[in-house]
Structures are given as structure tokens and as C-alpha cells.
Design a binder for these strands. Structure first.
Lengths: 392, 392
DNA sequence: TACTTCATTGCAAACCTTTGCAGCACCACG
DNA sequence: CGTGGTGCTGCAAAGGTTTGCAATGAAGTA
């Protein structure tokens, strides 16, 4: 990591001479309020004056100071986006979608990374509070009560977490986990492990619940492993444990862990999917590039980003900020409507899942190849693959 | 992508009642300036008063309005980070390093993504200008002259680009490309393709220059292919072209393209590294996970992020903003020192490169396996692998 | 002509904080 | 007692912008 300093010069470039609305006013011979209106309410100013002012502004390179404007209007036209881990490929599509959606509404997005650290999360909300009109909290790791408390400081929309009283956009990972388990059961797996993610993750709890129910309904045994770090090393770290547990299939908290697990198993000489099937969640780009290609539950990250921005802006527009009562600030609450949106997930089957010990012959007519290894089970075992699980 | 609206309730949570410095002053019976000092210059206020003020502030949930503070001090304690494509795994480590470094200096980082769009870049600099103390421009796609012009609006540090008069942090991709070519030549490749990236990329130009020189010095022929999108699809899209060109080795603009290319070649039935060797640049995490594992030029992204933040803050501290002359603003230039830092790169050899048509027997003693396919070349061909290339 | 309406512009307060300066009380020193 | 210093606090200006209100002049209406 050594570095070499190549050059070091000193220049006297004209540095940061801020040109204000006053300069433009002086140059164009009007009052500053007219200049202000030229930008924020052009229809109120004489076309002739307008072009003159605009010309001067252009000439001087004037740009309205957004901080000063925010001080008055109470709106910054920025929105904050707090992310648990920007290195997780799950997030970039969400970020890009949010940015593009925001741009259409003339908003800018500030992204901040918390490194999965709840403390950093809280601090960032505070730091962003006065510089943005609202914050999107993605896969937060802090407590629900803290989130509610922070929501009184700045409008919040929560992604991948359910907190009552706040607008949330959720992905139906419950349904996803169910489909995954049913897929595995249908392939003849009866002993399945669930690789848990961070303990404080809503997604994690949801998956456990749904996967447990689906396994029960399918007559399979579900082993819970975790919590683990939601990264590849988190996945590869439990490879040994997975092998010892003797399961024939694994549903991982996310793709990164699934991929890490496959790596780890590979290092142990365990082949995927021949000996162990692995399913991930998220359908990140990477899952199509590894070998074997990953079977995974696709989550609509782009839609989540767009929806979250929409919900934030909608809530924001309804109740403009800075409306303080006179005197000691009568805390007259603003009614606001909070909605929760649930986005669908889809199981996409690739190459990391295969027949399990209890598999029935794949195709009774076409391919008379023998069933998978250890196949004592005859017909009659419910496959649950058609979605007729009894889970309530 | 269909979504289901699960819930929609209305609540009257106390929403965003901003508590200002004035409220705290009233509550604690002191003047606002004393409250202000309690936070920004605690040693100037009586310890007794201080605790009282702090208690009231805590009680009311007061947080200084950073926008208002910025208006006076001219410093926001934020820095902007403009990224060409956040979905490129090259950037997250840089972002994280920058964030951590900034946090140590009590700064926050706002990340923005431009989708490789020069127009978006310019617009974002303008939008950020007054809300941050400086901007880090990572792998910018706009013209040098535009960058210089923008640098008069807000302090800039440029990463992965050389622009005179501005502080830059560069990675020695020239050296990296040279090492890669020498590695390939040493393996017996004489016909090599360079998969170019975006036309406006400084890295791209640098690689072409250095790779060309190294190939010439090593007696190999270098085919330039491109420009291409610096993504996996950009890589896989040229697979056919690579095959037709008949080269036995490829150096790609970055890992993403290299991985895409390997995918594309695989689909065409061309095996890597048996038939074609592939080298990437960046050493993203992914390059260790694909099969074959990617040989690549590792770039010190973390160090780049840290260095860039340091340079920005140093430059920033020297010349506090908002120092306008009286009257019509005598544009007296501020002398500032601009340095350029070059960070070293390292070739890391994995499994995507192998012997080429002109390879000499790998190990004269140990492995008496025959040489690679088509091996008309005897000894005497310079391998240049030791770094004795004559490139100036 | 007198009165209303409208378009355009100026005035000044307000947003929230920081900070140079001045005031005050108190103490020590001569 | 007078002088100077120190420790703490208040006053008020400043920063760049928005915006309600008032002023101006011109045009339209009765």
C-alpha cells in the first residue's frame, strides 16, 4: 500500500469566490427579491427583467445557496438513504432505483453506509436530519423503539422492516422462504438447514417463521444455524457445521452467504448440488456468475427503492415541515397516513439445487436414470411443491 | 413486480416539531449565545450553567441545525463522493474507506451515483456544492476543462484521473498493465487483446499506453478492442469478437469485464485458461469467487479513499471558505497547494491465465509434461517476466 | 373623472446559528 | 481606593435566501 508523491505545486486559481443573490441583483439593477423570484416563481416577474436577470446570473455563475434556501422553506430537496452495508450487492440496485425515482421528482439522494452498526445508524439519522427532507432506512439493525423515536426528528420510511406507525416497504421473504422449502422438499430433501442472518434483522425472523411452518407442513426437519454475518465469510464459516449437521439442503439468509457456503463446502470436498443443495435469497447479479449458478429467491429491490421514495415524498408533501406554533411551540400533532407495502418475491431455480435423498425418479417416462442416492422412500410422500402447504 | 398494499392507517404522532436553540435558551434561562457556546466552545461557559443547558437540551431533544450553522461558519462538515457506478464492486471498498476516514475527522460522507453519465456528474457537483465542504470525484467521465471549471465552485479532489492544478489520487494502472502483459508474455502469449473501457476514462488511456509499450518490448502483438461498457455485459458482448481475433490472451479494463468475457467465451465453448487467458484489473471480491478464479491487477481502493479524504480535508482546512472581500468581492486568489499521489498496484496471479502457444516447458526438471499447444518457439524468446522491459 | 384591478417590484422580517464586542462582577495587586 | 485582569454572559450583526405585504404605475370600468 505504499504510495509515491509525484507532484506538488502551488497555484493561485481563483478559489471559491461565492457569488450571491445580491451580486446578481446589483449587476442587473433590481432588488434581490426580484432575483429570487426569477428562480423560484418566474411567472411573477416581467419577461424582460427575467431575461436580464438570468443573463447576469449566468454571467456571474450564480447558483442559489441551497442551505440558505432550506433554512427558509424547510425543504432541502434532498433525501437520505441509510444502508446497512454498501458492499452487499443487494443494495446497489435499490440505491440506483431510488436515485432515479428521486431525480424525476427533482430530489437528490445522499447515501450513507453504517457497516451493520446500529450506533452508526442512529448517528447518521441525526446528522442527516436537518439536511434532508426525509430518510430511507434500509434493513436497519436498531430497535423498533429507537426507530419510532427517531421518526419524530425526521420523516422516515423503513425498508425491510416492519415497524407499526411508520411507512414500510417489505419484501415477502416469508413467501420466498416457503417456496424455497417447498422446492427442496419436492426434490426429496427431508433434512434442511436454515442459515440465519443478523439477529436483529426483520427478514431473518420472517424467514425463520415461514420456513419453519413450510418444513413442518412438508414433513421435513428444519435445523436453525446462526445468527451469522450476512456476508460470504459468514457463509463459508459455517460450512463445517453444515457438513456435520448432516442436512442435505440449506436455505441461506442471502445470496452472499449461500455463495460463501458453497465455497466453504467446496473446500471441504462437499459437492453442490450433488451432496448438498443450496438456496439463497436476493438474486444478486453475482448469483448468475458463480458455478454452480445459484438457485435463489429473487427480491424486487428496484421496486423497493422506487416505492420507498414515493412513500417518503408523498408523506412529505402532505405535511410541510417547519410549521411551528407561536410561543412555546404547541406540539399539535400532524395527522399523517402510513401505509405498508408488501412486494412479491420469486423463486428462481438454477443449478445449486438437485435431488435429495428422498427423491422420486425424476421423470417416470423419459429419463429412467436411477433416483438420487439413498432413496428408501416410495411414493406417497407429499411434495408440497404445488403450494398446497397447510401453513396458516 | 406486483405489490400488495397490506395496511394503511392514520396516526397523529407528534411530527417534526423542530426545537431550536431559542427553546433551549428559554428553558434554561440563559441567552441563546450561551447555549451556542455550550456546544461549540464549552470552555467559555460556566460549568454550572453548562450542565443546566445540556440537561435542558437533552430534555427537549435539541440538535443544532447544521444548515444554519453552515451558513455562518461556511463549513458543513460533510463531504460529497461522486461515483461513476455504485453497482461496480470496485467502489464499495473505496466508499467505506473514505467514510471511515471522514468519520475520524468528524465528517460525514454523502455518496451519489452518476450512472457513468457526465451530465449527471456536473449536475451533482452543483447540487452538492453548497451542502458539502468538498467533493471527491471518482473516475469522472467529464472533460478535464469542465472539472477545472467546477473546481472553482467547490474544492475538488479527483480520483482515477489526472487533471493539472487539482489534487489527484491515482492508481498506477500503467505499471499494472505492464506487469499483466509481461506475465502473459512470460507464459508464452504473443498475440494479446486489450479490452478497452469507457473512452473518456483516464485509466483506459493509461492502460493502452503502458500495455502497448510493454507488448512492444516483449515482442507481442497487441490488439485494441473497444471502447466498451465497463460491466460484465460489456465483457460478454465482445466474446465473439475476441474469439474471431485469434488472440490467446486478453487484458480487460476491469474485473467485471473480464468475468463477463469469461462467461461469454464459456458460452461459445472457448475454455479459460486452456484456450484463452484472461487478466482483469481491480481485484474485486468477486474475482476470487468465479471459476476459474481471476488473475488480476489489484488496485489499492481502500488507500485511495482514505488518501482522497485526507487531501480534501487538508486543502480545506488551509483555506476556510466564505472569505469574501468587502464591496464587490475583490477576487484575490487563495494560494493552495495541490499534490498528486500515485498508488501502487499489484498483479495477483490466479487461475484464469495459463501457458500460451509459445510457452516453454513449464518446469524443465519437475513436470515433464509437454508444452502448451502449438509450440514452435524454441528458447531465446525474451520473457520480460522479470520486469526488465525497456519501456521508458 | 374617480375607482378598481392587475402586473410588477421593493421592503423588511424571518429562518437558526455563530461570534466579535462590550458589559458586568469579582478578585488581586499596588 | 484605584487599576487591571479574569471569567462569564448578553447584545446584535451577519450569513443567503424566501415571502407576505405594501407601493407603484398602468390599464380597464363605471
Amino acid at each position: 500500500m505504499g504510495h509515491t508523491c509525484v507532484t506538488a505545486t502551488t497555484s493561485d486559481e481563483g478559489a471559491a469566490v461565492p457569488v450571491t443573490i445580491r451580486d446578481v441583483a446589483r449587476a442587473s439593477g433590481v432588488h434581490i427579491s426580484t432575483v429570487s423570484r426569477t428562480f423560484s416563481a418566474p411567472h411573477l416577474v416581467n419577461p424582460e427583467t427575467r431575461v436580464r436577470v438570468l443573463a447576469c446570473a449566468e454571467d456571474l455563475g450564480y447558483r442559489p445557496n441551497r442551505a440558505a434556501r432550506a433554512l427558509i422553506t424547510g425543504r432541502t430537496h434532498n433525501i437520505g438513504l441509510i444502508i446497512a452495508d454498501i458492499a452487499n450487492p443487494f443494495f446497489p440496485p435499490l440505491i440506483k432505483a431510488a436515485e432515479s425515482q428521486a431525480r424525476h421528482r427533482d430530489y437528490h439522494v445522499f447515501v450513507a453506509d453504517t457497516n451493520e452498526d446500529p450506533t452508526a445508524e442512529e448517528e447518521l439519522v441525526h446528522a442527516l436530519a436537518k439536511q434532508v427532507d426525509g430518510v430511507l432506512l434500509c434493513s436497519p439493525r436498531m430497535s423498533n423503539s429507537l426507530i419510532e423515536q427517531l421518526s419524530r426528528e425526521v420523516p422516515l420510511v423503513v425498508v425491510n422492516r416492519q415497524v407499526t406507525g411508520l411507512p414500510c416497504v417489505l419484501m415477502d421473504v416469508g413467501q420466498g422462504a416457503r417456496s424455497a422449502i417447498e422446492h427442496l422438499v419436492g426434490l426429496g430433501h427431508r433434512s434442511i438447514a436454515l442459515l440465519g442472518g443478523p439477529r436483529s434483522s426483520w427478514t431473518n425472523r420472517e424467514m425463520r417463521r415461514a420456513a419453519g411452518a413450510a418444513a413442518r407442513a412438508g414433513g421435513a426437519e428444519l435445523t436453525m444455524l446462526g445468527p451469522n454475518a450476512p456476508t460470504e465469510v459468514g457463509g463459508s464459516a459455517v460450512a463445517e457445521q453444515v457438513r456435520r449437521s448432516g442436512v442435505s439442503a440449506v436455505l441461506a439468509y442471502n445470496d452472499l452467504m449461500a455463495i460463501g457456503l458453497i465455497e466453504g463446502l467446496d473446500a471441504l470436498g462437499v459437492r453442490v448440488p450433488q451432496e448438498v443443495s443450496v438456496v439463497g435469497v436476493d438474486d444478486i447479479t453475482l448469483s448468475r456468475l458463480t458455478r454452480p449458478k445459484l438457485t435463489t429467491v429473487a427480491t424486487p429491490t428496484g421496486a423497493a427503492g422506487r416505492t420507498a421514495v414515493d412513500m417518503l415524498l408523498q408523506q412529505d408533501i402532505e405535511s410541510p415541515r417547519g410549521a411551528r406554533g407561536s410561543g412555546s411551540g404547541t406540539a399539535l400533532g400532524v395527522r399523517r397516513t402510513t401505509a405498508q407495502v408488501m412486494l412479491q418475491t420469486d423463486l428462481v431455480i438454477r443449478d445449486s439445487t438437485g435431488p435429495g435423498p428422498y427423491a422420486r425418479p425424476a421423470r417416470p417416462l423419459a429419463a429412467p436414470r436411477g433416483p438420487g442416492p439413498h432413496c428408501p422412500a416410495g411414493p406417497g410422500i407429499p411434495t408440497a411443491a404445488t403450494g398446497d402447504a397447510v401453513a396458516s
